[in-house]
């Protein structure tokens, strides 16, 4: 049911009036008790953010600085509270990340600041805040958005992490390439039935789930790109670290399998139109390690080729892979000590950290590029399911 008596849209000014004593009810119904998987599924993306902003506009319109401050504090604290409570739920975190960003974009778009008004319609310019400059609150909201982003990454890692080694390294999809296991090495997963074992498909399905949730929540495309880049980084780093610690993963055929898996991940990026988000580049150390498993490792020319090819790997990583390299077929040979020395000598002058393992806790700095909305505030209607009948459209 529409909350208010229908009026012509042109009569609305895109504000929502509320009584000071209803503020707690507002944040309870709209933030604390809203279930992203229930009611929120059918909302227009960012609706909670628009509703909160329209309430804020009214507090600004009546020139009540205490009401503005109080609403912003309640909104921010409520978002923090729900994330404390349900911070391990990807959907909840994604939902509030996109709404926090939308709220922040609204604060910019309607700030009255020229730099944020370039894409506004004349009507949107009329809807700019009239009494208060909320630049400092925008900074606080941006800090909050960074916290939520980091929580989203942690949440995503917790889900993805257990799939990576199994899906990227252990599970073999290319039949017949590595029928022979390295001598003396037992395949770690062979005793477990395939059920419960993650495959590359499990990883790709999970990437699809993350992606479609973020799209459904109206997450800014630029933000999705940053999340995907971070996802690929973690996949690449965890895979490479395990390869560097496991002799049974350092064979020609594993190199083949890894390259195939990487190509499938690239295909996923292409399919989602995310080829330019920097995600593929984060896999470069893994790609080079896989190539290193496959190239010839015998002559001085081979050493030269390896040194120029492996610019995303540290000397320690290159040497480790060469040391671990284990022939599985008759046509393969161990890497000679002399060859490894040649590589070490060639790379002596490289300026790099001596680190062997990649930092799996690294999070790339996030930015929230301004993304104004074309939505006209005066057309927004509040679904009855949100239990906000105490708000009045103005």
């Amino acid at each position: 049911h529409p909350v208010n008596i229908p009026r012509r849209e042109k009569d609305f000014q895109g504000m929502l009036e509320y009584k000071k004593e209803d503020e707690l009810k507002l944040v309870k119904n709209l933030i604390l008790e809203l279930k992203p998987r229930g009611v929120a599924v059918n909302l227009i993306p960012g609706l909670p953010a628009y509703i909160l902003f329209m309430c804020l506009r009214h507090a600004d319109y009546v020139n009540d600085d205490q009401k503005v401050r109080s609403l912003l504090t309640s909104v921010i604290n409520s978002i923090k509270k729900i994330l404390k409570k349900r911070g391990d739920d990807f959907e909840t975190v994604s939902f509030w990340l996109s709404n926090t960003c939308r709220f922040l974009h609204c604060l910019k778009q309607y700030s009255g600041d020229d730099q944020f008004m370039k894409h506004n319609t004349p009507k949107q310019n009329d809807h700019c805040l009239s009494n208060f400059d909320l630049a400092e609150y925008r900074q606080v909201l941006s800090d909050l958005a960074i916290q939520i982003y980091q929580q989203l990454i942690k949440c995503m890692e917790n889900i993805l992490q257990p799939m990576i080694v199994s899906g990227m390294l252990e599970h073999e999809t290319i039949q017949g390439v590595s029928g022979v296991k390295p001598t003396g090495l037992r395949k770690r997963t062979s005793s477990i039935a395939d059920e419960g074992t993650y495959t590359l498909d499990s990883i790709i399905r999970q990437l699809n789930t993350f992606h479609s949730i973020m799209c459904q929540h109206g997450t800014d495309p630029e933000l999705i790109k940053q999340v995907v880049k971070q996802q690929f980084y973690i996949i690449g780093a965890v895979t490479l670290n395990n390869l560097l610690l496991r002799k049974d993963m350092c064979s020609w055929s594993k190199g083949m399998q890894i390259r195939y898996n990487v190509s499938q991940l690239e295909e996923w990026l292409r399919d989602k139109n995310l080829m330019t988000c920097g995600a593929k580049e984060t896999l470069e150390p893994l790609i080079q390690a896989a190539q290193l498993l496959q190239v010839k490792k015998k002559t001085d020319e081979d050493a030269e080729a390896i040194c120029s090819m492996c610019n995303a790997l540290s000397t320690a990583q290159i040497v480790k892979v060469l040391n671990l390299y284990t022939p599985v077929n008759a046509f393969e040979e161990r890497v000679s000590v002399l060859f490894i020395r040649t590589i070490q000598t060639r790379l002596r002058d490289r300026k790099e950290s001596p680190q062997l393992l990649m930092d799996t806790k690294l999070i790339y700095p996030v930015t929230f590029p301004f993304n104004p909305s074309s939505l006209a505030l005066e057309t927004i209607q509040i679904p009855g399911s949100l239990n906000l009948a105490f708000l009045t459209r103005v």
Partner: peptide
């Protein structure tokens, strides 16, 4: 309304300071 009116800057507390202004005291006290 004139297009470039002067708005009053509202000083904001930090995210941490805001947390101390607990709006949910009633339900969080034991």
């Amino acid at each position: 309304r004139p297009p470039s009116r002067i708005r009053v800057l509202l000083k904001a507390p930090t995210l941490e300071e805001m947390e101390e202004m607990n709006i949910f005291e009633d339900e969080e006290s034991p």
